[in-house]
């Protein structure tokens, strides 16, 4: 029997009928066509499928769609404010060369968002720890770590300015 669920994804509300075994990853990618979230392993080991659910970073491949009923989800598609602008995390990933094949990128960016929202000035070690559940086979991580610290600086500055104005 299918279950009716309501989820808010990147600010938009959706009603879906899903099988009880359908994962959030399948619901996002196949039902909502939000294919920015990837599937690298399906076993919770690579981090490519990471999304934020009510402020927590989760592996969408291990999360059942029914369990996010009534909750709010942020995916990579929710990062950029518009087609002309990018989120500081995205800008930093592009600028520092943190993207090669790009398959780990959306999970990495979401991890960065989660990390920086909880810890706006992470040390290098904290960033590396924050990424330890995320695999990348191309970049050797160093440029990703750099991107996250660059983004952190930028985000502090704009938040600061927002506060002042």
């Amino acid at each position: 029997m299918k279950h009716n669920i309501k989820i808010v994804v990147n600010g938009d509300e959706y009603s879906l009928a899903v099988d009880p075994w359908r994962t959030l990853n399948e619901a996002l990618r196949e039902d909502l066509n939000l294919t920015g979230t990837k599937l690298g392993c399906g076993t919770g080991d690579c981090g490519a499928c990471t999304v934020i659910v009510d402020g927590r970073a989760v592996s969408s491949c291990l999360t059942l769609a029914v369990s996010v009923d009534g909750k709010s989800v942020t995916t990579v598609e929710g990062l950029a404010p518009s087609g002309d602008e990018l989120h500081p995390i995205q800008e930093a990933f592009i600028k520092t060369g943190a993207i090669q094949c790009g398959f780990c990128t959306s999970g990495m960016e979401i991890a960065a968002l989660h990390l920086l929202s909880n810890n706006p000035s992470p040390t290098e070690l904290e960033i590396r720890k924050g990424l330890s559940g995320h695999l990348c086979r191309c970049t050797g991580y160093n440029q990703i770590v750099e991107a996250i610290s660059v983004a952190g600086e930028k985000m502090k500055k704009c938040c600061h300015e927002e506060e002042r104005s």
Binding site: N33, T35, G36, A80, I94, G97, G102, F103
Partner: peptide
């Protein structure tokens, strides 16, 4: 020079084979 495919990948809009339906 920044990679010219980086923005699409950063946005999650770059299509990989499994993304195509």
């Amino acid at each position: 020079v920044p990679r010219t495919d980086a923005e699409a990948k950063a946005r999650g809009s770059a299509l990989y084979t499994d993304d195509i339906r």
